[in-house]
């Protein structure tokens, strides 16, 4: 009994005396696709930033969009690769935080509506009204391209998703949405067009079973957001340095390729005003 208690005490002490965090600059990213791909991509980004900024940099993987926003809000990470919606939410919660860089193609992002070929819905230029009455898979509940924008267009053309569709589900991420529609678990769904293109280029999509039936008009999406209170921890002008380093990633094709983007360009909070408005309109953003 005695030794157990001593060991317990030691354990508890060790637990609370854990490492006092040094000046590590931590960042996260919304888990929009397969984790290994994210690990691969952001591991490289962490190494690159460490070199450029001269501080220890750590990538913190998370399991949900909300966890990414929470980690940013709670100052567990100081930088994040957000989607349009998660970025807007994070900046509402953390005054002083700013969007600093985005992919050039993120200014004109799209959602692809996809359907199982068994539904016999043909690709069209205008919104596919034949979706009504089917089962439909969004991506994550907090995704811009997998939830916010597709829901916006569904509401505009058909009505509230839970009334329009026979069943509504949330797949969790875009790779998963494609799989679920291909297997027929859902008849149709909405995916990030970049993920679709990447998977297609790899030959990972069974085009006999799932295809694109409609492409939304363009909207702003992914971007890097940084917290505001970093000068005292990391030195004067730190935010500008980070922004420059991120834009400098454009000269590293192998990293840009993992993002499926050609280059990063400067971004600002007002680039995402449209997302905020859509979010408020469909009630996902409530303040």
């Amino acid at each position: 009994m005695h030794s157990i208690r001593i060991a317990l005490l030691a354990g508890v002490l060790l637990l609370w005396a854990g490492p006092v965090a040094g000046q590590t600059f931590a960042f996260t990213a919304i888990p929009d696709q397969d984790v290994t791909r994210l690990q691969d991509r952001f591991g490289k980004v962490a190494d690159y930033l460490e070199e450029e900024l001269g501080v220890a940099v750590r990538y913190v993987p998370v399991k949900s969009y909300a966890s990414a926003v929470n980690a940013f809000r709670n100052d567990q990470v100081q930088l994040a690769w957000f989607g349009g919606l998660s970025g807007v939410r994070a900046r509402l919660l953390v005054p002083g935080s700013r969007a600093i860089a985005q992919g050039a193609s993120d200014r004109r992002f799209r959602t692809y509506f996809i359907a199982n070929t068994a539904t016999k819905i043909e690709p069209t230029e205008s919104f596919p009204s034949g979706l009504a009455g089917l089962t439909f898979a969004f991506g994550s509940k907090g995704s811009t391209s997998g939830r916010l924008m597709p829901e916006h267009y569904i509401r505009k053309h058909l009505g509230p998703p839970e009334e329009v569709f026979q069943r509504v589900g949330f797949s969790g991420n875009h790779s998963q949405t494609i799989d679920l529609v291909a297997t027929g678990a859902y008849q149709a769904g909405a995916v990030n067009f970049k993920v679709w293109q990447t998977e297609q280029a790899k030959g990972a999509i069974d085009t006999d079973r799932v295809r694109v039936i409609w492409k939304t008009p363009p909207y702003p999406d992914y971007h890097w957001t940084i917290r505001g209170n970093l000068e005292e921890r990391f030195g004067k002008g730190f935010r500008r340095e980070v922004a420059q380093a991120l834009i400098g990633l454009s000269d590293h094709p192998e990293i840009m390729e993992s993002f499926s983007r050609e280059r990063f360009v400067p971004a600002s909070n007002k680039d995402y005003q449209r997302i905020l408005e859509v979010g408020r309109k469909i009630g996902i953003i409530e303040r």
Binding site: A10, G11, G18
Partner: peptide, 21 residues
């Protein structure tokens, strides 16, 4: 006792809690 003494070393990660949060 040995396990309990070693276990905290395995947990890793930050153990900081911000009272503000």
């Amino acid at each position: 006792p040995l396990y309990l003494a070693l276990a905290p070393l395995l947990l890793g990660g930050s153990l900081q809690v911000s009272m503000g949060n």
